[in-house]
Simulated scan of single mutants.
Amino acid sequence: MGRVALMFCIAVPAVVFLFSSSPVTVNMPVLKGFNFSGGITVIPELVALLLALSIYTAAFIAEIVRSGINSVSDGQKEAALSLGIGPVKTLKLIVIPQAMRAIVPPLTSQYLNLTKNSSLAMAIGYPDLVSVFAGTTLNQTGQAIEIIAMTMAVYLTLSLATSLVMNVYNKKVMLTER
């Protein structure tokens, strides 16, 4: 499972980046006149947006994981320890698989909340980006309903894809009845 996740997180974007013939240039910032030229520009709004969403969402996810682990009864942990299974293996083989059944449903809701919160944060933090799509394009075409429907379709697609992936994973970890 870890290798597949690593492939999707690193290898697939790297292959797409290389085959899209995107130029990769690394240059050091140089002082020219009264300003710097080159390097990477970090926008303060992006840093604030990233920190706020990360800390806010991490707090909720940490609480979900904590409550999921606490939902496993102490008898399970004590039975594993009495069989001579160490604390790390107990957590890995007994507690986490049972806790995932309680963790996945609220975690799905939290991921969907993150999608909604990031869209709101983009509208507030980057009004120029939103104005290009919903402002300039709207003024050029004059078709407000279609532009807003396209924006809604993008977020609907993201939400449905997130929900689909999490529901498939939930079915995998769900307890099967006989």
Rank of each mutant, 00 (worst) to 15 (best):
D128N: 12
K116P: 03
T115C: 00
S119Q: 09
S82M: 13
I94K: 07
P105E: 04
K89A: 15
V104T: 02
V130N: 01
P87K: 11
S82E: 10
P106E: 00
S109T: 10
N70P: 02
D128V: 14
G84Y: 08
Q110M: 01
D74F: 12
V130I: 08
S118G: 13
N117S: 14
K89V: 09
L93S: 11
A80D: 09
S67C: 04
L120S: 06
S109R: 11
L114R: 01
L107F: 09
Q110T: 08
S109W: 08
L93F: 15
I124V: 15
V132L: 13
P127E: 11
S118T: 05
A80E: 10
K89D: 14
P97K: 08
L81P: 06
A123C: 09
Y111H: 02
L83Y: 14
S119E: 10
S67P: 00
V130H: 01
I96C: 12
Y126I: 04
V132T: 06
S119I: 07
S82G: 08
K77P: 08
V95G: 06
K89Q: 14
A123W: 02
E78H: 12
A121S: 00
D128G: 14
L112M: 10
V95E: 03
V95I: 14
V72K: 04
L93M: 14
I103Y: 00
L81V: 10
S82A: 15
T136N: 04
I85W: 06
T90C: 13
T115P: 00
T90G: 09
T115E: 00
V95D: 05
V72M: 06
K92V: 13
P105Q: 05
R66E: 03
K92S: 13
A134K: 04
V132M: 10
K77A: 15
K89H: 12
L112N: 02
F133C: 07
L91T: 15
L107I: 03
T108S: 03
M100G: 07
G84M: 09
L107N: 08
E78I: 07
S119N: 11
S118F: 00
